[in-house]
């Protein structure tokens, strides 16, 4: 946000991070008071766990890795797509439509502060989802957690980057939505396609190579790989397409997507769906 247009009195410029914090606390409060939203957000990965647990048994091609353990990464990533991309595309479209954002546009706040608030809540909700998923998964399905501090750290940056990219893309896509009721219809198809080809619902290494190549252009495939790298035994990397966890590449791709999606969101953002 440039504040260089200031020409009159008061060289005060709004603190982008500080106002982002103001927005974050407010958005979190609003989210926590919406009981249905909280319950379904937290239940979403558990439902996936239940479905995978019922439908899939046994290990993957004598690798010693259980199917449920493999798809744990997919459940987490799928929840991230749902909480970031899909849910934000709707929320933001509604707020553009009902005048909430138009009113905020008249205040000193930068859109970036607004993004920080929204993305912060997405990350907070995802953290809560994962805690619940690990507890229930650990108790009833014997899923393993990351082995060491390095594993937790890796999972941390994969999630933060993945969720931020997912959130920014969700905000960006509202540019294509005039009627908030259509937001889900616009956001669902790309999200669904990506989930099918990115190792969320199927073994990534089992997909045709050309589909793998398409998927590799998008962040979701790298997010699931990054998560598998800390949720599966290290030896499983031999079964991945590159025979390696490719953590550097995961970081670079996710970082580029986060940055690119952030810039896209900032450039396409409208405070109102009826803006000029």
């Amino acid at each position: 946000m440039t504040t260089t247009r200031t020409s009159g009195a008061g060289e005060w410029s709004p603190p982008v991070l500080g106002l982002g914090w103001v927005r974050y606390r407010l958005e979190l409060k609003t989210f926590l008071r919406n009981r249905e939203e909280v319950v379904f957000t937290l239940a979403f990965p558990l439902i996936l766990l239940l479905l995978f647990g019922v439908g899939l048994n046994g290990e993957i091609e004598s690798t010693g890795v259980d199917f449920v353990q493999y798809f744990l990464a997919g459940m987490i990533a799928s929840s991230a797509v749902s909480a970031g991309f899909i849910s934000l595309s709707q929320q933001v479209a509604i707020e553009q439509h009902d005048g909430t954002l138009k009113r905020l546009a008249g205040t000193p706040m930068s859109p970036v502060s607004y993004f920080i608030g929204k993305t912060g809540v997405v990350i907070t909700a995802a953290a809560a989802q994962m805690v619940l998923l690990f507890v229930i998964g650990g108790l009833f399905y014997g899923v393993d957690l990351p082995r060491d501090a390095f594993g937790w750290l890796t999972m941390g940056w994969v999630m933060v980057l993945g969720l931020a990219a997912s959130s920014f893309l969700g905000i960006s896509i509202t540019r294509m939505v005039d009627d908030p009721r259509a937001a889900a219809a616009v956001a669902q198809p790309p999200a669904l396609v990506l989930q099918f080809i990115s190792g969320v619902f199927f073994l990534f290494s089992g997909l045709p190579v050309w589909l793998q190549n398409v998927a590799s252009l998008f962040p979701l495939r790298w997010m699931t790989l990054g998560l598998r790298s800390v949720l599966l035994p290290d030896g499983f990397k031999a079964a991945e397409t590159a025979g390696d966890w490719q953590r550097t590449k995961v970081f670079v791709v996710l970082a580029i997507w986060t940055l690119g999606a952030g810039i896209l969101a900032r450039r396409t953002f409208r405070w109102s769906s009826r803006d000029e």
Binding site: G8, E11, E95, D98, G99, K102, A105
Partner: peptide
């Protein structure tokens, strides 16, 4: 909407959104 103005005016629209 220069920032120097936004911090000095108050706006009450016909709809103020949902809080």
């Amino acid at each position: 909407r220069p920032i120097g103005l936004r911090s000095r005016v108050g706006i009450v629209l016909q709809t103020t959104g949902s809080f």
